[in-house]
Each structure stands twice: as structure tokens, then as C-alpha cells.
């Protein structure tokens, strides 16, 4: 150990014991002092609010009376709540699925082309991830604009009727998912590309000599080698997508008729705009279960990776 090596050099044999103790004490004191700002920040602004939110959810609207699970009871009786649950799940699962799929294939295409061109392509394909989401969503909103929609203009050239991108519930749901996929797929691409680079080339050569076709190579080499990173990325993205706010808020603000609300936007509507903080807190708490489950699996993956490394 580094500490012992230092000890051996610095301290004469006679006083070793007490000064070692002092040294240890000093070391842990310094270490604690160094982590203290982090601990204060996390406890005061993340952990405390998270628990406070559970307490808030048990109060009435004016926050003066304890109502227990009254807010939840109220939510369970509202059809809008169940619709938000359904829409959040549809939104998160389908968006993550397509992000992973597109990211996987695009990563493959980038990996296939010669190395010197890869940087350029990777650079271009990452642009959606780099632009602030709120900003790019405004761009999409303008592309979807009912009277000047540039997409509808193009479709019109092919003789297709204008599509009510954000006006019709089904299309609006499609649109928010589309924008989310557009924004998130580059992240998957970059993760998968990093994973693909770590698969030893000899495996593919051996497989090619054995006569494996592209599907067999994908199924028996690429996927098993990337399994861990795929799992972590998907779970990660599931959390972020489930908690998404910007895209839905700017594109549809939950409409038409609340059909595209997800937990975050609905909680914002009730809690901040509707001034019913406990109800908003209760809604946002429904993000916890999926969060917890994903976190456990991610942690397992990350730990396993640390042990392997």
C-alpha cells in the first residue's frame, strides 16, 4: 500500500505506532472534508427533497391538513390519471425500443465504413444529442406547424393529404415519440459504437473462416459481447425517457385533450400551474417504481463490469 510505503520512509521505528494513528486520522479527516460539499449537496438538494415529496403527497391542497393517501385515492378515481399512466408507459417503452434499434443499426453502419471516415459521420449523427432538447423541440414544433408544416408540404408534393401532426391524439402521440427517438438515438449509437470497438476483430475473422453469415456473426458474437452495455444503456434511457418533460411540454403541452401527458408534464400542470403542490408531488412519485427497478439492474450491471475490469 502507498500509505505503508510512505510510513516506512518517513517515520523512525520508535514512534511508528502513535504517528501512524495520527496519520490515519488525518487522512480520513482530509478525505471527509473533501467529500463534505458533495454530501451536503446530495443530502440537502436531492435526498431530502425526494423524501419531502413523499410527505407533501400526504397533505391537502392548502398544505395544512394531513390527508394520508387521500391524494392517491383521488388520482385513482380520475380517468385522466390512468390515461397518463398508459401514455407514459407507451411513450417510454416505444421510444426506448426505437432508440435502441436505430442506435444499434446506425452504430453498425458507422463501424462498417473505413476508420478515417467514421469521425466525420459520427460527428454529424451526434448533432441531435448536442442541441438542447428544448431548442430542437421548437424546431420540430415548427416542422409540425398546422398551417405551414414543411412535412405536409412535402407530402402534398406526393399527393398525400396534410397530416394533423399535433392536432389529432394518435398523431400527437406518434409525434412526441418520434421527436424523442430523434433526440435519443444518437446516444445509443455512440454507446454501441464504443462497445463494437471493444469486440476483438479476431472473433469475426474466425467466424468468417468458419463460414458464418452476417446474421450469425451478429447473433453469436456481437450481441453477446455487447449484452452488458445494451442492458445498461436501455435501462438508463428508460429512466430518462420515463421522466421526460421538455419534449411533451413544448410540442403538445399534454394536449390534445390531455392525450399526450406523461407523469412529468402532468405533475407540472397540477403542481406548479394548478398550484396544488401535494397532488403534483403525488403524481411525480409514480415515477419511483420504474426508477427503483431500473436502478437496481443498472447497479448490478455496473458492479459486474467493475469486477470484470
Amino acid at each position: 500500500m502507498a500509505e505503508l510505503a510512505a510510513e516506512a520512509v518517513r517515520v523512525p521505528a520508535g514512534v511508528r505506532h502513535t504517528s501512524l494513528q495520527k496519520f490515519m486520522r488525518r487522512r480520513s479527516t482530509i478525505a471527509f472534508a473533501m467529500t463534505l460539499p458533495l454530501i451536503v449537496l446530495i443530502v440537502a438538494l436531492v435526498i431530502y427533497p425526494a423524501f419531502y415529496s413523499m410527505y407533501l403527497a400526504t397533505l391537502n391542497k392548502s398544505m395544512q391538513r394531513f390527508v394520508g393517501l387521500g391524494n392517491f385515492e383521488f388520482l385513482f378515481r380520475r380517468a385522466t390519471f390512468w390515461m397518463v399512466v398508459k401514455q407514459s408507459c407507451i411513450f417510454a417503452i416505444s421510444a426506448v425500443f426505437f432508440k435502441a434499434l436505430i442506435g444499434f443499426f446506425v452504430a453498425h453502419f458507422v463501424h462498417t465504413i473505413p476508420t478515417k471516415g467514421q469521425r466525420k459521420w459520427r460527428g454529424m449523427l451526434m448533432v441531435p444529442w448536442v442541441i438542447p432538447t428544448a431548442i430542437s423541440t421548437i424546431g420540430w414544433f415548427w416542422l409540425f406547424d398546422p398551417s405551414y408544416s414543411a412535412f405536409n408540404w412535402l407530402l402534398g408534393k406526393f399527393g398525400v393529404d396534410p397530416v394533423p401532426w399535433l392536432g389529432h391524439p394518435l398523431w400527437a402521440r406518434f409525434s412526441v415519440i418520434l421527436v424523442n427517438v430523434w433526440y435519443g438515438a444518437p446516444f445509443f449509437m455512440i454507446m454501441y459504437l464504443a462497445a463494437l470497438k471493444s469486440v476483438p476483430e479476431q472473433l469475426y475473422e474466425a467466424a468468417a473462416i468458419d463460414g458464418a453469415n452476417w446474421f450469425q456473426r451478429l447473433w453469436y458474437i456481437t450481441l453477446p459481447m455487447m449484452r452488458n452495455i445494451i442492458a445498461i444503456t436501455v435501462l438508463f434511457s428508460l429512466i430518462v425517457t420515463f421522466a421526460n418533460f421538455d419534449i411533451v411540454r413544448i410540442l403538445t403541452a399534454g394536449g390534445p385533450v390531455d392525450q399526450t401527458h406523461v407523469f412529468a408534464t402532468w405533475a407540472f400542470l397540477l403542481g406548479i400551474q394548478g398550484n396544488d403542490i401535494p397532488l403534483g408531488a403525488a403524481v411525480s412519485l409514480f415515477m419511483l417504481p420504474i426508477l427503483g427497478v431500473s436502478a437496481i439492474f443498472i447497479l448490478r450491471g455496473v458492479r459486474r463490469r467493475t469486477i470484470e475490469a
Binding site: 427533497p49 425526494a50 415529496s53 407533501l56 412529468a264 403542490i277 411525480s284 415515477m287 426508477l291 431500473s294
Partner: peptide, 16 residues
């Protein structure tokens, strides 16, 4: 803590 989304925290923080 990195996994806890901001959308879960903004309401309690607002109240705090």
C-alpha cells in the same frame, strides 16, 4: 442520485 430525475425533485424543491 444521478439516476433520480429532476422531474421528481422540482415540486418539493419549489416548496422548500
Amino acid at each position: 442520485t444521478y439516476l433520480i430525475p429532476e422531474t421528481l425533485l422540482f415540486i418539493p424543491l419549489f416548496k422548500i
